[in-house]
Design a protein around this nucleic acid. Structure first.
Lengths: 325, 325
DNA sequence: GTGAAAGCGCTAACAC
DNA sequence: GTGTTAGCGCTTTCAC
């Protein structure tokens, strides 16, 4: 059985409140007493119970981080950056995976709510209504989704899509397909809006698709049927799957069809042809999100939501080339 | 402000204990009363506070999962399998990343201890001594590390190494290098032990190396200096980095040198040449670990540690070939 | 079937 | 500088 504050109090001949102070407000206790308490605590292997502490203070010093799919290489750099950044500020980050399921997402948020001081919501799939309701119970920072009244970190994927399309147009492409992502994805809608506004191209929007390798693989037939010469995919995973699907059908990339992804994940750099992609500032997003969240947590009721938009850029590699004759 | 049990009690004209029972032992309360309480709770948006509940019951219904590096594609499938498996049993899994830092690992375990019912330790880097000490405060299941007195899930990487080596020997290789992993890795030691026992080969052990793409890249020079014709790397990431490093030096794989990885991660399948590798049963490991942990949690003090060893197998792809003449 | 009361481990006034 | 006391949100005897 782990030692409690009472055991330490008893063993060191002081009262529990003194032990409590020794840990949460050391300067308020006599150096001599403090040392004795500390020694006894060490001896008994006592560690303050954070959950119990949270019950009275209302502060857990934990943050929750919810992602749709840990297996998507897009998220780990964001997670790691957030964790490292939070740790410097004496906060711990607990990650949970929703498996792209809104129901699970809601359940996880509910569970986390009382065990953390704030939640980082990455690319949520939940409806605005539900998010707003859940928001009443715990501070949120939302990444890659625009929600009024909530602190938000956006990656400027609209700009990224324009860069990608400009690159394709410069290579001579006119008939271009956009492989959209999951329903409910802000990023996907943002890309589509940006793409539709680009003049001089004939855009076909295909989707929604699963934001995975398999989603891209499954989309290959539709892409060929659409009669386009270039494709902008919702993300790199989908782009990689598409390239595979095309290869299976004997279609060469970039010889016969150009493909651009979004995210700049590691596998995109490893695949052949190396993937041309819109790079997303995932690490900066993780750090910024933690900053905004801690700001909210510190401010309490008076918190003012903030919006940060992070820049994206295009990385040209091998999966794009001139339009075939 | 979130509603508490007291708000619900007041609003539905019953006492808190009845509300409590409605949620934790519904069969003990009159159907009519129960429905009224449920309706009021729903109305007020009441959710039982799990942290407070845990304080009295000693059960949080949360599990902690500690990994060295979320960004290593080896872990996500294990994490996802564990989460899915746990959810079916009404448990939530919180993931934390140690960044390969034993100090951080210890800190995270300390923090998690009181907020979860048990911890899944994947490929821990901590010393046995420290793990044993921490184990006194919370049930552990350890994955890929052998610790007496603790429930353990092992992947039979020794057997995998033998399969890989046999494959290389069959291709004519005799001078083979083993790129070992991080210090403190059970997997790495296990591979080395198995490899050293294989007769008829001349083994060079190189390392320790960082279990990342960069680690493999950095090892390329040493591999060439060793004058071997084939390499077995600690994991796929390292193997991929090695292939890159060799390519930079104009050495072709598998033409001039054969490379085998371990793990069977997605990027290994995407890279060119496609990586020959020892497949690890990561998903089964995640599920098994949760089972063992829940068994421990349910048993309380009387828990008996169990050991499960999971089989590995070899996947031959393109990064291995006959020894050059 | 429901109420009353004690208590989980801790903090935070308030006394002294 | 330290002790006393109440209470965070909940469960769990024990009465009734």
């Amino acid at each position: 059985m782990a030692a409690t504050i009472r055991d330490v109090a008893q063993a060191s001949g002081v009262h529990v409140s003194t032990v409590s102070r020794t840990f949460s407000a050391p300067h308020l206790v006599n150096a001599e007493t403090r040392n004795r308490v500390l020694a006894v605590a060490e001896d008994l292997g006592y560690r303050p119970n954070r959950a119990a502490r949270a019950l009275t203070t209302g502060r857990t010093h934990n943050l929750g981080l919810i992602v749709a799919d840990i297996a998507n290489p897009f998220f780990p750099p964001l997670i790691k950056a957030a964790q490292a950044h939070a740790r410097l500020r004496d906060y711990h980050v607990f990650v949970a995976d929703t498996d792209e399921d809104p129901q699970v997402e809601e359940e996880l948020i509910q569970t986390l709510t009382k065990q953390v001081d704030g939640v980082l919501l990455c690319s949520p799939r939940l409806s605005n209504r539900v998010i707003e309701r859940l928001h009443q119970d715990v501070p949120f920072v939302v990444v890659n989704r625009r929600l009024k009244g909530m602190s938000t970190v956006l990656m400027d994927v609209g700009h990224g899509a324009r860069l990608a399309l400009a690159h394709l147009v410069a290579l001579g492409h006119r008939r271009i397909a956009l492989l959209s992502g999951p329903a409910g994805s802000w990023t996907s809608r943002e890309m589509a809006d940006a793409a539709r506004a680009v003049p001089g191209i004939e855009l076909t929007v295909l989707g929604p698709n699963s934001p995975t390798e398999h989603g891209g693989l499954a989309a290959a037939a539709g892409v060929l049927a659409a009669g386009v010469t270039a494709v902008l995919a919702y993300n790199d995973l989908m782009a990689i799957g598409l390239v595979e699907g095309l290869a299976e059908r004997g279609v060469e990339v970039p010889g016969e069809l150009s493909v651009v992804g979004v995210d700049d994940i590691v596998p995109g750099r490893l695949a052949r042809p190396k993937l041309t992609t819109v790079a997303m500032p995932t690490e900066a997003a993780g750090r910024t999100a933690v900053d905004l969240l801690l700001q909210l947590v510190g401010a309490g009721e008076t918190a003012t939501p903030a919006l940060t938009t992070l820049a994206t850029h295009l990385i040209i590699r091998e999966s794009t080339g001139p339009v075939p004759p």
